[in-house]
């Protein structure tokens, strides 16, 4: 589904990603871990199409298409979803109104008919149950005055509404207490299918107790320096990142 090949990316002349290689197949969950400043969020942003990042080298193929050629909204239409680490506030625009625009523009791009208000609300009701989100929250201005937990839950709700093929969760666990974490993870698990894939970007192993990865990759200084299965995450939890740093230094 996704193939990242020797990806180099920089921001304001500073190289952040220095040759990422990663392949994600349908049905898989990949965790990307690493110390702060290793380039995890940059990778998520580059995949979603943030323009402040310059691609210096390499390629990203998604479902046979050159992902880097697509505008951010085209990537979304193709099924790429990014759950933001810091969801953005849009005053005066309700989540419902926002999502209606998003869902219908995506449908139009895929050659489907727009949903009318009634059908849209019906779909929304179903998905609300899935992530246990309150109607009242969806009528409020998007993310404005939301608590950390509400914002993250809202991200997962949007993910449920947009039914992505490739979901990238950027530090979705940051700022969440354990109950909120469980609810969010539960939502993600329910949305999992053999046809879609998930990339979980996280600093801590904690989230991976609830969203169990098939593969764990350690990102350090802009490269994936180690890959393994979920036991690698536990090892990192026990020993921290220092031993990885030492290994890299020894090379």
């Amino acid at each position: 589904m996704l193939k990242i090949d020797n990806l180099h990316a920089s921001v304001e002349g500073k190289e952040i990603l220095k040759g990422i290689n990663l392949e994600v197949k349908a049905g898989e969950v990949h965790a990307i871990m690493g110390p702060n400043g290793s380039g995890k969020s940059t990778l998520a942003s580059v995949l979603a199409g943030r323009e402040e990042y310059e691609i210096e080298e390499g390629s990203v193929t998604y479902q046979g298409k050159d992902l880097l050629e697509l505008a951010p909204e085209e990537r979304a239409h193709a099924g790429v979803f990014l759950a933001f680490q810091y969801p953005v506030e849009i005053p005066g625009v309700s989540t419902t109104n926002f999502l209606k625009t998003a869902v219908n523009q995506t449908r139009e791009a895929r050659g489907l008919k727009s949903l009318d208000a009634v059908s849209f609300l019906k779909v929304m009701k179903e998905k609300m149950k899935l992530v246990d989100i309150d109607q009242a929250l969806l009528s409020r201005a998007l993310n404005e005055g939301f608590s950390g937990g509400e914002k993250k839950r809202n991200e997962i709700f949007q993910m449920a509404m947009l039914e992505p093929t490739l979901s990238i969760l950027d530090e979705t666990d940051s700022g969440l207490d354990i109950d909120a974490l469980k609810i969010v993870a539960d939502g993600v698990n329910k949305l999992k299918s053999p046809d879609n894939a998930t990339i979980v970007v996280t600093h801590y192993q904690r989230l991976l107790d609830y969203i169990v990865p098939d593969y764990v990759h350690v990102l350090y200084q802009g490269r994936i320096v180690k890959s393994g299965d979920k036991s690698l995450a536990h090892e990192l939890e026990d020993k921290g990142y220092d031993w990885i740093k030492e290994e890299v230094a020894a090379l």
Binding site: R50, E73, R75, H77, V88, I90
Partner: peptide, 16 residues
């Protein structure tokens, strides 16, 4: 830019 990018990431084009 953050607001615009957020919308775009959800499939909403710049103008909308």
């Amino acid at each position: 830019e953050d607001q615009i990018f957020y919308c775009q990431q959800r499939g909403i084009d710049e103008e909308s």
